[in-house]
Structure formats: structure tokens, C-alpha cells
Amino acid sequence: MDLDIDGVRIARERADLALRPGERLLAGGTFLYSEPVTPGVTGLVDLLGLGWDPWSVSGGDLEVAATCTIATLRDRAASAAEQHPGLRLVAPCVSAFLLSFKVAHTATVGGNLCLGLPAGPMAALFAALNATAEIWTPDGGTRTTPVADLITGPGRTTLAGGEVLRALRVPPGGLAARTAARKLSLTAFGRSAVLVTGAAPGGAPGAAPGAAPGGVDGADPAVRTVRIVVTASVPRPLTLPVPAGDHDALDTALDRVGDWYDDPHGSPDWRAAMTRRLSHEVLEELS
């Protein structure tokens, strides 16, 4: 770990989240083992001291705290998946992490999201489930944004200075959804090069349309919508609402993507081809 900082403050209440010069928020911190801390960062403020309830259901929504560890997310979802089938998507997204059991018990949902990694599997998960992010603003207020819009590029999010990701809220449609996931990477347990997730309204294929987890503007409401989320192969999560079974529509949507991610984990042409392939598989499975 190349950790060159002066110290760590443990936040105990919201007021502690006011950052001093050089400070950044910390929620788990396992990524610090991957890369050196950003130049200029001299201190960290640990959110775990706030003691947020990692997992709660309220008004039909599931609320997952930003400080919920990956292991807790995995275990709670496994227990609740029978009641909420959409949570079956948690397992493949967690396995898409490049993580050991020790990391799973330390890394957090919010930490992964706020890093803004193109290959961040929590974005793939919560965007597919049509979740919203609850964000604390420095003035003591709260704002919400779709998780799909939270990440704007590699290492970039819509979080403004002093804003804190508080929780992810999964709506009933997301919890009830049927889901699918596909992943490719250089090694079996390596960082994702392409990660495609998808969600369709709950119920068996061909059943009456349910509450779509995100719809297609102007589409026939009688046609079920599959929400496909592409991550890892693109700089920021890409959400593609596609009518069930409409592979031409999927191709059209993918044709419009011009910005494929390029790093040592895969070339843009391969990522484009594999994204198309995996997206069609997901659409097929959910149609």
C-alpha cells in the first residue's frame, strides 16, 4: 500500500463530514491497496464510524447504505433473493469484483460506486435495478439521482465537493425484476473487461407486463422493456432500455456507442464486439 497521508478521522456524525483541506472520504479503503493515494490527499475521513444500517426495507424499497460491505450485500441478498428475485443479480456482480474474502468484508458498495471505475460492478448492479442514489449535500440537505447517471467517466462522478453518497434505494420494480449478467475479463477472476447486466419486469416471459424497471420512451406499453446496462467496456455505465426480444433495437442502440474503453484489459474493437454479443445474450435470456 502506497499510503502517504497524515492521518484518518473517524466520522461519528454528519457534521464530521465537512472536509478539511487535503481530506477525502473513505468507505472501506481496500482500493488503497491497488493504487497510490491521489497526490495532494493528506487525510481521510472514514464514514464507517457513522454506523449506518447497511440494509433496510422501507415502503417497498430496499435501502442499501453506502457503507454496506460487499460481503454483507452478498449475504443479505442471498437470503432475500427468494422474496426479491431482482437481488439474484447481486451474486454475479459481486463475483465480477477482483476481490478476496478479506476485501469483501472491508470494501463497500459506496466505495466502489464513488471511485467511478468503468469496471465497477456496483454500478452495473444498481443501475440495472433502476436504483437511485441518495446524496447528502454540504448544506445539510439531500438530493437523489439515478445510479445510472452517477458515474460520468473514469474516476468521475456527479458528486460535488463535500457531497456524500448516503445510500442506494432499489424500487419495487427492481426488486421484482428478472435479471441476467454476463462478464468477460482477461483472467477468470480478473478485472472486468466487459460486464453486461440486465433486468426485465418480474414474472415469467410472456406474462402480463409488470412495472418495468425503466421504460422506453414512446414504446408500446404492452411490450415489456429490458433494461440493459453496459459497464467496463465503456467509460461510464451505459443504460439501454430495449423492447423485449427486439434484437434489432439493441443493435441500433449499440451502433450509436462510439466510445469504447481502451486499456490493457482489452482493445476497443474486441470490447465492442463482446458487448454486442453479451448484450444479445442478456436480451435473449430476459425476453
Binding site: 491497488s34 483472467t187 480478473g190
Partner: peptide, 16 residues
């Protein structure tokens, strides 16, 4: 160097 961390320079693990 683009592969300047062990997340990008892929030293295999036993699981691979």
C-alpha cells in the same frame, strides 16, 4: 507505463 499497478499488470493467482 500503463501497467503500473498489480490490477493492470496481471500476475496470476492460483485461482487462474
Amino acid at each position: 507505463l500503463l501497467t503500473g499497478t498489480l490490477a493492470d499488470y496481471l500476475v496470476p493467482s492460483a485461482a487462474d
